[in-house]
Amino acid sequence: MAHIRAHRVLPGFGLSLGFTLAYLSLIVLVPLAAVFLKTITLTPEAFWQTVSAPRVVASYRLTFGTSLLAAAINVVFGLLLAWSLVRYRFPGKRLVDALVDLPFALPTAVAGISLTALYAKNGWLGQYLEPLGIKVAFTPLGVLVALIFIGLPFVVRTVQPVLEDLDTEIEEAAASLGAGRWQTVWRVVLPTLLPALLTGFALAFARAVGEYGSVIFIAGNLPMVSEITPLIIITKLEQYDYTGATAVAAVMLVASFVLLLTINGLQGWTDRRAARNG
């Protein structure tokens, strides 16, 4: 301890760490612990039966599957957006920049209702998609669209500052050393952006897993097909099955936590690799 203290320039380590722990406990850990406490009132068999029912399992698949896919799509297009916003000057740039944040600010229910109205078979977009055999509203595809919408700002906003710091000179240096365009992007730009992209992915994913408001309108909510896990939880609550609801919630929490931990680990690895190479 004395050793650690000797190296610390700023005072107040004990105080700030103590505050951090207390604050996290109050805001995050206590509510989550309540979920687990309620869950353990179930017998192991009843718990397993609840969380492994076919309908519930189908909902995990939909929720985690579409969330991962939406986050992946957001990484690709979020990077593109961030790139345009940082590297190019065009009229209305500030406006576009502000637009990116809109999904943060909009109540998710508004997003859900507008997307549904848009993609329903009598909607602006739906009327053209439906004859092509593409059904968006009231299908898992609709869930994906909603999750892409709410997750977009996370990737753009995490990549943007890193991209701003990335000097164009580095790219020019790569080019002058004989790297092709593709090589420059692949070997120089992307490795630098990778940690930020992973953070954006993790945030977009986490947001999507917990999303309820926007999805519920566009999903159709058919059991086994388009029912998300948060809806299963709400359904259980509405049947006064509080322990069943917390059991499913606990599974969701653990799964999300493991996934996020993996992504964080991955990010640490890329950081270290970047440090080694740099």
Partner: peptide, 21 residues
Amino acid sequence: NVKVLDSGARGSTTTFVERGI
């Protein structure tokens, strides 16, 4: 044959009447 399973009666009315489903 059910295509949309809303959580409440009013939601279903909207789906049928406004969305044309």
